[in-house]
Structures are given as C-alpha cells and as structure tokens.
Design a binder for these strands. Structure first.
Length: 565
DNA sequence: GCCGTTTTCGGCCCGACTGTTTTCAGTCG
C-alpha cells in the first residue's frame, strides 16, 4: 500500500511550494497529504473505483498526481521542484524558528542549502546582515541546530504521558483546572511535545511555577499566558493559561488536531460564527466556551472524543449522528498477551495474575514464547504441557479471577506454527507471531501469515506489522489481504499495547474493522509494570473507531472460551 | 489547488509571541 509514501511526497511538495512563496497551493497539498495519511483504505483501490476526487481535499489535479505515483513511483512536479530546491533547504525547516520564508531567503540570498552551511554561516555572523534577520536570530539558529542534533524527534506516548501527568500534578495546587491537551490527549502513538492547559486568575504565578519546575532545563519563550520550555530529555512542553469561561474552547482548540480545528472553524464560518481559543462568537457576542461540549453543540454536532479528532470523517459522522460508541478502558475485562518467568517474563504465573487482578482485570491468558524463540527461553511441547498443569493449579487457587492457558507460537518461515497441533488445540488462546526473517518479500510474508491464520488453532495474530516505533519498520506485507483473511478465518488481530509497538495503530484498526475483523488487546506484559499499558491499546482502539463489540477482551472469560472453541 | 447554505469565482482558521522594525512579518501550534 502506497498511501504513506504518497502522503510524504505531497508534504514535501507543499514545503517546496512554500519556499517558492506560493500562496495557497502549499495548503492544498498539505491538506491532501493529511487526508491520505489517515485514509483507512488503499488509494489504489479507490482509484480503481474512480473515486479519488470524491475524497475531501483531493481534486482533479492532485488525483492526477496520485495516479502518476501509483503508476511510476514518481510525481513529475515533485521531481521538477527537486531540481530547484535542494533537500538540504528542506532540512532547515526543522530548525525551530525557521520557516519556508526564511529558508527560502537564505537559499536565494546566500546560497545556503544544508544544515551544515547554515551553522557555518551563523558562526561566521554572515546571517545577521540579511533583512529580517539579526543577532538574536543567529543565536537561535545555532541553539536550534544544537537541539536538533540532540533530539531523536518524536517521543513515545508511553514515555511522554507519565512525564506530562507528573507536570500536571506539580501544578495542580496552583490552578483552578488543568488538563493535558494536544496529541497526547488524542493518544497518538508518538508525540512531538507536551501541551498543558490551565485555568487561573493569576497566570503569572502559574507561568513562574511552570518555568521553575525541577525538570525544566531551558525556558524557550515566556509571555503573559503562554510558556514554552524544554524538559529533561529534550522534550518540549507548552503551558497555556486561560480564564475559566474559556476553558472548553481552549481545551478544544489545543487538543487539535490542527486539521480537525480548521475544518470545524470553516463550518463555523459558514454558519456566521467565529471560534477561537476563547469561545464561540456570534458577531461580538460570546455564546459559548466554558465547556468543550458547548463548542460542538453550537455547531450542531455531538461531542467527539479526542481520539477521533483527526479530520478523518468524524465531523461528517457527527453531523449525521453516526459517531461510534467508543470502547472504554472499563470495558476491558482481560489481557490476552502475557509473559511469565517460564519464558522471558519477570514474574511467576501467580505473581502476574495477582497484579492483573489488582488492576481490575477479570482474567489473563498466559502466552509465553514457544520453542523457536530460543533467545527468549521459548517453551517446547513438553514444557508447555507442564505449564498448562501449573496454570490450572494456580487458576484454582484464584478467587474471582480466571487464568487462561495459551502460547505465543512462532510463525515459521513456511507459515506453520512451531508447536504441534495436538497441544495447540488443548489451549484456550493461541497467539501467533512473526519473530524471524523480517526481510521476506511482500508476497512471501503475506502468504506465510495467511497460512498461519488458516490453522484453525490460531486465534490471534500478534503485532501484525512487526514495527518497532523509531527502530524497525513494518515488514513488507499486504495488510489488506491479512485483514480480509482475519475476517474470513475469525482470527483476531492484536492491538499490541507495548509503547514501542502499538500495532495495529488507529488507521489500521479502522481498516481492519471495515474488513470485518475482530481485534484483541494484549499488553505483551513482561513485568507487572507493563500491565498498565492496556490504556495505550485502548487509545489505539478508540483512534480506530472501535466499539465494545469489536474487541475480544470485552467478553467475560467464559464467553471468550466459547467464542474461541 | 480545492471548495461551495457566499456554488464556477473568490476566498482559504486564528491568535500569541519573537525579533525585527518603528508598525509588522514570520513562525508556531
């Protein structure tokens, strides 16, 4: 599927057109790129149906460019722009404070076309003589380049959320209200920064407290109502303070996404209303803004959960009264991917069961690794038989809690599971997973996994794309075929809750649901701490528009056993 | 380049903050 590649190409075209000082075309390309990025269906299929121009933001022109890419892997406009604007000029856009206007000017007036050249020119004080640049800009450029070298870019949701929650708690006594906003509140699997919104009559006190927190390394900017800092680990955090009457409008605004907000505001505009972070206005009169719900109500929409706000059809669905009744954390009764000290986990069967019970789960499935995964001390048939006995023994001791037997079986290169069917069929839950030969060509990898799913004993496909965020790309795979096959064979697709996996992610989850597949939540727990990762998986499920009925884990243990039989 | 309860042209979200200018352009979210 080429959706992501095409989105990237369109983003790059937008940046280049920006640098060329084009007026509205960059916005159009960027909009189209965003739509494609969040699209729950392969562009190729949409083109075959002749429906490309039916997509929001995609007209005749961009549809043609998409076609070009699908046919040749290239877009001629993109190639042409590349000869005019070197890649290095685009790299400069990543420096904080540097946008297309400045990068363009630097390139045209000084021939600067890479980060290295920019750094050199700044050190030699050659930049300050340009119009619109000065001594401070030069210093900020050097500081920004330094920062770029240190940071890895986006941070995992699982790392950023605890840090944000700690900051929120440190400030709670100084404010009337406080909330995390931004992509963190939308539960995006990676976040670029932490956004926090607070209500206070005395913003200065809050700003001061924020910029003086022990974890703050550097204050980037500090105004009357807005402060930006860098926390330890080079994570940027923004705090905005508003009055109580504007909290809803501001929370809505700062939660985003940007595209969701732009879409919302253009609808408001057509209704003769204006929305900003202070409220909803009809002429000069403020008609709402205290609560987030008001904003949507005034636009004739029902409330939308933050996880839905990607401008991926949620606004239209809301207007039609067709929003999903999203799954909640409380709906999740069990965890279907758990390791113990029988393979590479850190806890005993009983230890992990008690910890899961303490966190409110009603059951877990013990799914240790199987024998092929020697590095993780995977279980042989004989060891698994012993473990099953042990699981049943511990299960009998537990009150109001069920432990299911299971395995995370390796899917071998030929598509077979690495344990004998005679033992697999005795287990409650068989999770199948690819842990080897990630570099297979797409066709082979797809057939390998499809073959495994056709094994009637396999219930769940673990981490279906194999990606490790920031470390390993997904393997080559016809993901749509996998989803169709999952629906056909009643194999659930896992939403792996581990912070660096979160795979399937939102758009994929939505595709899978539309293909008719069920999903399963698994924390891939290796220690008691990991059990809480379930909330990140629920985040992906909600981002994928899932309802309670779409997820295996919302069944009771008995219902699940019956379903899997 | 896209879109339409402003419909085939004319507009495209909106405000805070900074650094450069002396009234505002550029960046950011």
């Amino acid at each position: 599927m080429k959706n992501q590649e095409i989105a990237r190409a369109l983003y790059e075209i937008a940046d280049m057109l920006d640098i060329k000082n084009e007026q509205f075309t960059p916005r159009a390309y960027r909009w189209a790129a965003r739509v494609i990025e969040e699209l729950p269906e392969d562009l190729e299929k949409i083109r075959k149906r002749g429906e490309l121009t039916g997509l929001q933001g995609i007209g005749k022109n961009i549809a043609k460019k998409i076609g070009e890419y699908l046919d040749s892997g290239k877009i001629s406009l993109h190639e042409r722009l590349r000869t005019e604007i070197p890649q290095g000029v685009l790299d400069i856009l990543a420096v904080p404070g540097m946008g297309p206007k400045k990068a363009g000017l630097l390139y045209r007036e000084r021939g600067i076309s890479s980060l290295d050249e920019l750094e050199k020119a700044a050190r030699e004080r050659r930049i300050r003589r340009l119009r619109g640049f000065g001594e401070k800009t030069e210093k900020n450029i050097l500081k920004g380049i330094e920062m770029l070298k240190r940071t890895k870019g986006r941070m995992l949701l699982g790392e950023a959320l605890p840090i944000a929650e700690e900051v929120v708690e440190s400030l709670r006594s100084k404010v009337e209200k406080i909330s995390v906003a931004g992509s963190l509140r939308r539960m995006k699997e990676t976040v670029g920064d932490i956004d926090i919104l607070a209500v206070s009559e005395n913003p200065k006190v809050v700003m001061d407290a924020f910029s003086n927190l022990p974890q703050v390394e550097d204050v980037v900017l500090k105004g009357k109502t807005k402060t930006t800092v860098y926390l330890e680990g080079d994570l940027q955090a923004d705090l905005r303070v508003v009055e109580s009457g504007s909290f809803g409008a501001a929370l809505q605004y700062f939660t985003g996404s940007k595209d969701h907000n732009i879409h919302l505001r253009s609808i408001a505009q057509r209704m003769g209303l204006k929305i900003n972070e202070y409220g909803v206005f009809e002429g000069d009169e403020k008609i709402g803004g205290k609560a987030e719900e008001e904003i949507y109500e005034l636009l004739g929409m029902s409330y939308m959960a933050p996880e839905l706000r990607e401008d991926a059809g949620e606004i239209e669905a809301s207007l039609d009264g067709k929003l999903p009744d999203l799954i909640e954390l409380e709906d999740v009764k069990g965890d279907l991917h758990v390791h113990t000290d029988w393979s590479d986990g850190g806890k005993s069967i009983q230890g992990i069961a008690e910890a899961a019970k303490a966190q409110g789960r009603e059951y877990i499935a013990i799914t240790d690794h199987s024998k092929s995964l020697k590095i993780a001390n995977g279980l042989s048939e004989e060891e698994l038989e012993l473990q099953v006995k042990e699981v049943r023994k511990v299960d009998r001791k537990m009150k109001d809690f069920k432990i299911l037997t299971g395995i995370e079986a390796d899917i071998k290169n030929n598509g077979e599971l690495d344990l004998d069917d005679s033992i697999l069929k005795e287990l409650d839950v068989v999770v199948g997973a690819v842990h080897s030969k990630f570099s297979m060509p797409e066709r082979q990898m797809t057939e390998r996994i499809v073959d495994a799913m056709r094994n009637e004993n396999m219930d769940i496909l673990a981490h279906p794309t194999g990606r490790l965020i920031g470390r390993r790309d997904p393997y080559e795979l016809d993901i749509e075929e996998i989803m169709d096959e999952a629906a056909e064979t009643r194999t659930a697709l896992e939403i792996n809750c581990f912070p660096d996996r979160l795979d399937l992610n939102g758009p994929h989850v939505r595709m899978a649901k539309e293909a008719g597949a069920k999903m399963s939540l698994g924390t891939d727990t290796h220690s008691t701490r990991d059990l809480q990762f379930i909330k990140f998986g629920v985040g992906m499920a909600r981002r994928g528009w899932l309802e309670k009925e779409d997820v295996l884990n919302t069944m009771t243990a008995e219902e699940l056993r019956a379903y899997l039989r």
